[in-house]
Every structure is written in structure tokens, then in C-alpha cells.
Design a protein around this nucleic acid. Structure first.
Length: 418
RNA sequence: GUGGGUGUAGCUCAAGGGUUAGAGCGCCUGGCUGUGGCCCAGGAGGCUGCGGGUUCGAAACCCGUCACUCACCCCA
């Protein structure tokens, strides 16, 4: 038997309802907020990701699905969609358009990691990118969309954490200060954190080991080393959130892993998701458009992990299935009459079905029950001969005889008034 | 890449060295020959993940391997 690839999952019919609800909610809210959909390719030239995400990040170093095109060009399955969106934004000169600055997208992303709860090698994201606005109000708008999305779906026990990474110049300066501090505590840090001191000192602050957290308790805070402009921007974002009454938690330890983030970063976590508890995250990336060859353009966005959203979605959020009419037809005259009835019902836009394998009324009734039909139209040879059908209400068991020719239209009225 | 857990019927799980590997749910048939659910009776369905070893005897113990899963790293 050929199996699916490790870390790549089928989304089966029984779970698709949850996905459709989430996608419809995302799409509707994004449009309400003035974002417009963009569809970018699932693969791009490798260099695009290396330059945007950061050459020394885990994603680029060891998690990308990279392959050679026939001419030798290195291509990569997208590990995220911001890079592609920015590329498209520059390539099609969207900055010249007064209306195309706010984009949203859906789609699969690919990262070669060991799968675990809430983490797959092919996973799906919904995300937005707002280009061209450096105002704190843009950060607040994006965060408020993210928060509204989760609350509309009714995800329980969410926390919005927020931090500022400062402007481009602030981080290197802070890194130096932090490193000085860490050196004085090196003996108390875990093996991992000692390694991180060399690779990514900011991550030490985010370590889960209690000893490390204790050791870094008095560490200098990035938010104390912000430039005046970065400080003012951050404060304005926080005030903006307070104005909208969106609850947040300041987390000076919150560090985003992608190199392009600047100033505001945020993350929404859900407390009963297991270890991978971030359902959505994002931030500002004012330098990225320029890095990729565009003109200097501020931008802010987020990405939502749809698998994680599905996991956290309460069962009550599931949409109720629509009413189904089952056609139970059998016999040399009844069967063709039934097929015609089915055709007419469907032409009227009524969800109707039958089981072509069933040759007895009993088998039909059983199938109607399993499909959850609200009404069953019975057409046997007797009915066909009399040009009528029997309509059975599956819950009340009431049956009425109706003329064959007007049944479909009758049932349509009955469904509309029910 | 590293570590832990688990692999038995379609699904959820029993059987912890000893006859023919069981149960619930689901499925099929009949009770009910043109009427579903509930009930009753019967039935089908298993190379116990795979390969080796120990043993008179292995689903069980040992080794290997593969898969799934959780966690680390990292991230949505």
C-alpha cells in the first residue's frame, strides 16, 4: 500500500466542515477590514526565502523543501507566504495602486520538521500583509483583525502577547548588552542556551528551562533599549489596543524567529493545544520590501496556523448540515421515475440523493436514515403506475401521497417554509 | 537531527508465556416478502506492523526494523 508522506495529512470529508467554517470566517473578516485576496505560487526561487527569512534561521538552514529545476535553478516550496507576497507586491508594482496595499492569502506551506501535535510538514496558513503604512494604527488594525477572527470562531483561552524588537539599529545594540549580561550568568544556563548565546542570544530569554528563566530574571529588557521613535511607536500600539479593549500581555521575552521582523511583534497562544500553542503570530517588517529590491516600504502582517485553529475550534462551532431529501425508487417503472425526480429536485437547488445500489425499499430507508434525510420520496412501481409518489417525513413518520409531476416544486415550497 | 510512548478486527480497546486471540461500536443477514432508527437472534471480518531470536509453547519476553504519536530544537 502506498501511504501518504510523513507529516502530510489528508483532510477527510468529516473534518472539512470545520475548515470551511474557518476559511469562510477568515475571508469574510479580511474583506470587512478592507483586505483583498492575493494568490501567490507555492514555489519560488530559493534565494527569495534565504534573503527574506534570514540565511541563518532554522527554516532556511534545515527545513526547506528545495529542489533543482531542469535548468539547474534552485527552487523551494514556500515555508511561509510573506516572502512571496512581497515579491509579488514589488514585481507588479502594487505600491503604485492606491487600493491594493492590504492583502490576504490562504494556502499550504512546507517545512521539513519532525511532525508533532499541531505541526505538520505541509500545513496551512491564513495571513494578511498591510503595506505602505508606518502608523501604529496599522499594527493595531492588523492585530484587531487577528483577535476578532479568533473570537468570532469562539476559540477558548486565548492570550495575546506583544513586544517590540525596536528599529533596525536597536537590536544589534541590545544584543551586545544582553550578551554581556549572559556571560555573567553562563554557568547557570542550560546546554542549549549556551549554544544559543552564539547563534541567537535573544532566544535565551525565551527558554523554557526554569533555571534559565531564573538566571535571566534580571536581564536587560529590549524594551528598555528602544530608540525614542521605536518607544513612541510601541506605546501608541498599546494605547490603540486599549482603546479597542483588546486584552494583551507585555512579553519582553517574546522573540520572533524570522529575521525580517522589526518594532512590533505579537503572538496569540491557546492554552490547550499542547507544546505548539501559537495559533497566530506576526509583526512589523519595515525593511523587507527594500531588502528584496523594492522601494522603502513599511509593512505589518500576521499568519494563522489553520491546523492549530482547527484543533482549538470548539465542537459547537460546527455548522449544522443542510436538509437532505432522499429518493427511494425501485422496480422497473419506479426506478426511472425516481431518477427523474432526483434530477428535478437538484435542478431546483435542493440537496437530494439516493443510493443506486439499493433495490429494495428497506435498503433505501436504511440509507436515507444514515444520510440523515429529513424527507424521503418513495417511488415504486405502484406509485409510478398511478403517477404519484409517497413523501415520508423521517422524524414524524407521516406519509402523504402527492402527484408525481408537481412533487419537486411542492417540496421546494415545503423546505422554504419549514 | 535527538529522546520517550504506542503498534491486536473498519474504529476504540481487552487478553502480561499455556486450548480455536476477545468485547463494544460499525458492517451483513433474518425476525419484518413495500418502510429507517429501538429491540432480539445469527454471521462476516485478524499473517497480533514487519524480520529474526529465546522457549515444549510467543500477541505477550529479547534484538533489529518500519510506522504512528508525543516532546526537544524551532515555529503558525
Amino acid at each position: 500500500m502506498i501511504r501518504g508522506i510523513k507529516g502530510v495529512k489528508d483532510i477527510l470529508p468529516d473534518e472539512v466542515g470545520r475548515w470551511q467554517l474557518i476559511e469562510a470566517t477568515a475571508r469574510r473578516l479580511a474583506e470587512v477590514y478592507g483586505f483583498r485576496e492575493i494568490r501567490v505560487p507555492v514555489f519560488e526561487v530559493t534565494d527569495l526565502f534565504a534573503r527574506s527569512i534570514g540565511a541563518s534561521t532554522d527554516i532556511v538552514e534545515k527545513e526547506m523543501y528545495t529542489f533543482q529545476d531542469r535548468d539547474g535553478t534552485s527552487l523551494t516550496l514556500r515555508p511561509e507566504a510573506t516572502a512571496g507576497s512581497v515579491r509579488a507586491y514589488i514585481e507588479h508594482n502594487l505600491s503604485a495602486s492606491p487600493t491594493a496595499q492590504k492583502l490576504y492569502y490562504f494556502g499550504p506551506m512546507f517545512r521539513h520538521e519532525r511532525p508533532q501535535a499541531g505541526r505538520l510538514r505541509q500545513f496551512h496558513q491564513f495571513g494578511v500583509e498591510a503595506f505602505g503604512c508606518a502608523e501604529p494604527a496599522a499594527d493595531v488594525e492588523v492585530i484587531s483583525l487577528l483577535w476578532r477572527f479568533f473570537s468570532t470562531l469562539g476559540l477558548p483561552d486565548l492570550t495575546l502577547e506583544i513586544n517590540s524588537l525596536g528599529e533596525a539599529g536597536d537590536r544589534p545594540a541590545y544584543k551586545a548588552v544582553l550578551l554581556e549580561f549572559l556571560k555573567t550568568r553562563e554557568a547557570q544556563l542550560c546546554q542549549n542556551c549556551r549554544r544559543r548565546m552564539a547563534t541567537n542570544p535573544l532566544r535565551v530569554l525565551d527558554c523554557k528551562v526554569p533555571e534559565c528563566r531564573a538566571a535571566t530574571e534580571g536581564a536587560p529588557k529590549l524594551t528598555d533599549h528602544l530608540s525614542p521613535h521605536a518607544r513612541a511607536h510601541f506605546d501608541a500600539v498599546l494605547v490603540g489596543l486599549q482603546t479597542l479593549e483588546i486584552p494583551f500581555l507585555l512579553n519582553p521575552r517574546l522573540v520572533r524567529g524570522l529575521d525580517y521582523y522589526t518594532l512590533t511583534t505579537f503572538e496569540v497562544t491557546c492554552s490547550h493545544l499542547g507544546a505548539q500553542n501559537a495559533v497566530g503570530a506576526g509583526g512589523r517588517y519595515d525593511g523587507l520590501v527594500e531588502t528584496l529590491g523594492g522601494s522603502k516600504t513599511p509593512a505589518v502582517g500576521f499568519a494563522v496556523g489553520l491546523e492549530r485553529t482547527v484543533l482549538a475550534l470548539p465542537g459547537a462551532a460546527l455548522p449544522t448540515p443542510s436538509k437532505l431529501i432522499y429518493v427511494a425508487s425501485f422496480g422497473p417503472q419506479g426506478a426511472p421515475a425516481g431518477r427523474r425526480m432526483l434530477y428535478e429536485l437538484r435542478a431546483l437547488g435542493i440537496q437530494a440523493d439516493t443510493d443506486h445500489r439499493a433495490s429494495t425499499l428497506k435498503a433505501h430507508m436504511k440509507q436515507a436514515d444514515r444520510l440523515g434525510a429529513s424527507l424521503t420520496v418513495i417511488v415504486g412501481d405502484d406509485e409510478a403506475a398511478k403517477n404519484c409518489v409517497i413523501v415520508r417525513d423521517m422524524t414524524s413518520k407521516e406519509q402523504v401521497e402527492l402527484p408525481l409531476s408537481t412533487t419537486a416544486i411542492n417540496l421546494q415550497k415545503r423546505l422554504n417554509t419549514a
